[in-house]
Design a protein around this nucleic acid. Sequence first.
DNA 1: TAAATATAATTAGGAACCTAACTATATGAG
DNA 2: CTCATATAGTTAGGTTCCTAATTATATTTA
Lengths: 188, 188
Amino acid sequence: MNNNNKIINDIDAIPSLVQSKRQIDRYNLDVDAQAILVASRLMAAGAKLGHASEIHFSKFGLSTGRYRLLADLEDNEGEELPSQLAEHLGITRATVTGLIDNLERDGLVSRRSSSDDGRQRSVILTEEGAKKLREMAPEHFARLEAMVGLLNIEERSVFLDLLGRVTQGISALTGELGSKPKENISNE
Amino acid sequence: MNNNNKIINDIDAIPSLVQSKRQIDRYNLDVDAQAILVASRLMAAGAKLGHASEIHFSKFGLSTGRYRLLADLEDNEGEELPSQLAEHLGITRATVTGLIDNLERDGLVSRRSSSDDGRQRSVILTEEGAKKLREMAPEHFARLEAMVGLLNIEERSVFLDLLGRVTQGISALTGELGSKPKENISNE
DNA sequence: TAAATATAATTAGGAACCTAACTATATGAG
DNA sequence: CTCATATAGTTAGGTTCCTAATTATATTTA
C-alpha cells in the first residue's frame, strides 16, 4: 500500500520569519525581514490556492482554465470570439485554442464560422455546457464562501484593501527597480 | 509590427463586485457576494503573482521552481535527497527529477550516488549554483520588499494575520463541504 | 534464506501554459 | 486592381507541473 500523495499535505509548509531572516543575513542585505515574509507567504498562498482550485474543478471534470472560459462565455450571452476570450482571461490565443479543443471534445462548447469575417470562428456555449455550469454553481460558490469564512465582514473589507495594494505592488517584481507602482489609472 | 503581448497587461482585469453579484443572481444562490469577491480577487492575485514571478526569475535564467529548489538546497548545507526536496517544496518527486535534470544541464547542481543506500542519489549545489544565488540575492530581495512597499508595518501585520486565516480556509475548496476549518466568527 | 513488500528515483505520457511560425482572410497604399 | 501588410486562429515545439508505471535496492516476514 504505497502512499503517493503525502506531498499534498506538505504544501502547508508555511514560510517562517526565521527562514526569511536567515536568507537575508546570509548576504548581509539591507531589507526588512517582515516584508520578505509577507511576500513569501503570499506566494505560498497563491500556489496553494492554485493547486486547490485544480482539485476542486477536477471534481466536475474541468480545470481552472476550462471553467473560467465557460464562465466568461456565460457572462457574454454564450458566444464569444477566441480573441475576446484570450483578452478576458489574460491568456494567449494559442492557449484558448487548446482549451476550446478540449471543451469541444467534451461537448461543452462548439465553434461556428462567421460570415462577416472569414477569419473568425466564434465559440458557443452548448446546452450541455450551460447545464454543467448550472449544476456545479451551488457547490462551487458555497465552497468559495466557506474559504473566507474565518473572516468577518469588516475583516474582509480590510483584506480586500490590503490585498489590492499588494497586488498593485506585484509590478515591482517585473518593472523597473526603484520605480513606484503606478496608480490604478490605466495610462498608455 | 504585430503586437503579440498585449495580453500581459490585461491580466490586471480585476474581478468586480457587480460581476460576483451577477454570477450569484443567475442561479439564485444564497451566498455573500463580498465573500465571493474576496475569493475571486485572491485567485486573480495569485495567478498574477505566479506569472510575475516567472518573469522575474527568467531574468536570471531560472524559473520559480528551479530557484526554489536552489534556495532550499542552500538552506540545507548545499546537499539534499530528491525526496527531501520534494517534501520541502511541496511538489512530487517526479517533478523534482525534471528540475534537477534541468539544473544539472546548466551546471548549477550535480548528483552523487550514496554508498549508504544504493537507491539514493543526493543533489549537490555546485559553486556555480551558489554563485548564481549570491548574484541575484540583492535584486531579488529588493524587489520582494518593494512589492509590499505600499503597506506600512502595521498593515503588514494585519495582512499577515488575515492572509493566514484565508490560507487555512483554502481547504474548504477541497475538503468536505460543511466542515468548517475551525470556528466561524462571521455572522450571516 | 527466499519471497513479498516497501521505498528512491526515474521514465512515460498528459494538461495548461508559453513563444514563434504558419495559414487564410481582410485591408490599405500605390 | 495588385501587392504589401495586418489580423484571426491554429500549429509546432518548449516548460512546469501532474499521475501511474517501472527499475533498482532495501527491508520484513515466514
